[in-house]
């Protein structure tokens, strides 16, 4: 057993887990934060993506113990107060989700993608950058649209702030 401690969505959490416990299971089962999903066993579908120390990672492919001491943001921590994050809002506005299962990972990946491309994104880049996230419902059409819209809005916001 390992004692793990980390910040999750700005809150300090701790727990005693089997060493083999994956981060995603620590989040879901120990913390009851079920927004992060598991859709495959081979680290490909991306339903489990969270941010670890500011970077998108697959929480199904690391142990909770590996994440001990880190700062984790999950889908539950993205909306500030009651207001949706611009990427969440764009997914809703552009119908970038259907069954919603891949959505948390998709949105966390999108936020990371937009953060890494402050100058903006084009369709080709968005599609290439979504390599690690699988959706079976939407055909990606509206996901791409939502990410482009959110990216445009966020870089416009950043430009205004500058």
């Amino acid at each position: 057993m390992s004692k793990v401690e980390m910040m999750v969505n700005g809150r300090k959490v701790a727990g005693e887990v089997e060493d083999r416990t994956l981060l995603v299971h620590f989040l879901r089962e120990n913390l009851g934060m079920t927004g992060t999903h598991v859709g495959c066993d081979t680290s490909q579908c991306g339903a489990c993506v969270v941010h670890l120390d500011g970077k998108a990672v697959k929480s199904c492919s690391m142990l909770a113990a590996q994440a001990s001491g880190s700062d984790v943001i999950t889908i539950e921590g993205l909306a500030a107060g009651g207001e949706l994050h611009p990427v969440q809002a764009a997914f809703k506005e552009h119908h970038g989700l259907q069954c919603g299962f891949c959505t948390p990972g998709m949105i966390m990946a999108a936020v990371d993608m937009i953060n890494r491309h402050p100058g903006g994104l084009d369709e080709k880049t968005v599609r290439a950058e979504l390599e690690g996230n699988i959706c079976r419902c939407t055909g990606y059409h509206n996901i791409v649209k939502a990410i482009l819209a959110a990216s445009g809005q966020m870089s416009a916001g950043a430009a205004r702030a500058a």
Binding site: S43, K58, M113, G132
Partner: peptide, 8 residues
């Protein structure tokens, strides 16, 4: 891999 894999 993909962006998330490349982070680790």
């Amino acid at each position: 891999g993909d962006p998330h894999v490349r982070h680790m």
